[in-house]
Design a protein around this nucleic acid. Structure first.
Lengths: 193, 193
DNA sequence: CGTGCCATATGATGATTATCATATAATATC
DNA sequence: GATATTATATGATAATCATCATATGGCACG
């Protein structure tokens, strides 16, 4: 069988990108092979180059997709509560055990941050755009929005979020992992817990 | 020529670990091959298994070594200034462009943080030990040392340091990179700049 | 109902990988 | 100065990788 019916090429392309967006967050850029992704998408490895010019081009699309999903999820969370609690909800979701456990559907910066410097220019470019988006989302939900220094404050908040999540995932010790999340949450949400 | 003279086996072992400790911070765990390291250490790949049981065992030693170097460098910086300025000096060195540019001799958590969750247990164990060490270094230099909540505060400080450095390295945009470092530094050193 | 197109599969290639068996040469011992 | 020891080199193996050429079969159009 050469192809299964009723699948447009674009739909298959989307499916591969979607699969890759999860795979890179789960296994890292270097840990994600073309054959693995194609198999996970229900295809064989040979057809890959009908969809992408190279592995790197696919990684760039996947990184961009992963960033878009993260940003959309954040915006969705912020939109479901009254504005004065939006930042708090965002932080509670970001700094949760659930997020620690599920990198493949979580923040792309936390999942791939330390691998970014070594990636192809196209990949870093997509990542940079998404990082700016993430900082903007944080800035807009912050109580000091519009005031001088608010943007810098959002930079620090984002850095603390990313650092705490990465460290909470890195360590072997569940107690330390929890302590990192709790301490960061308490520090970033003054009026809570 | 089978071996160069006057080299004890331990000295060669040390040299391989030292080389690997830099290589993993430069190229990542997955980007570091046995052959590359041996060549960089001035040896051929075949002799590798006379020194290590496996590639993973070597990575664990290398990660531990990298962490020890980071901690020693931090302690050295803190020791060269009066105690009330120790934390400031530490942060200025950590959140510097120099550190952004030279991951191979810098903090192992920032260089490899997002790859840690996928590593072998021995590697994660070594990393966890070194992360605790890093948090302790920060805690001891902090003005609130001994007070309640000081340890939690150190957790947040460490998370912000790591997150800011990782993001500053990840982005493509030098202005954003600088802004991240400056904002984090200003936020963490109240009485400065 | 038949014909051609195009998305995907099959299969191959050459490079790189971790790992190991064996050969060799330099040091240490006598 | 001869011999044994041992650290390292040579070379091989099997697996995995990105990439590409070509085959095949389902779908649309005639």
């Amino acid at each position: 069988m050469a192809r299964t019916p009723a699948r447009s090429k674009e739909a298959t392309h989307e499916r591969i990108v979607e699969t890759a967006a999860r795979a890179i967050r789960r296994s890292g850029y270097d840990g994600t092979s073309v054959a693995d992704i194609m198999k996970e998408a229900g295809l064989t490895h040979g057809g890959f180059y009908a969809h992408f010019a190279s592995r790197e081009a696919m990684l760039a699309e996947a990184a961009d997709r992963a960033g878009a999903e993260s940003a959309a999820a954040s915006a969705r969370i912020a939109a479901t509560v009254p504005p004065e609690r939006a930042l708090q909800s965002l932080l509670q979701a970001y700094l949760s055990k659930e997020h620690v456990k599920n990198p493949e559907i979580g923040c792309v910066v936390a999942a791939l941050g330390s691998e970014m410097p070594r990636q192809a220019p196209e990949v870093r470019q997509a990542a940079t755009r998404r990082i700016k988006e993430m900082i903007d989302v944080v800035a807009r939900q912050s109580p000091d929005w519009g005031q001088p220094g608010a943007h810098e404050h959002a930079l620090v908040t984002a850095a603390t979020m990313v650092g705490a999540l990465i460290m909470a995932r890195a360590v072997d010790d569940p107690k330390l992992s929890d302590a990192l999340l709790k301490a960061a949450l308490k520090h970033l949400v003054p009026a809570c817990d």
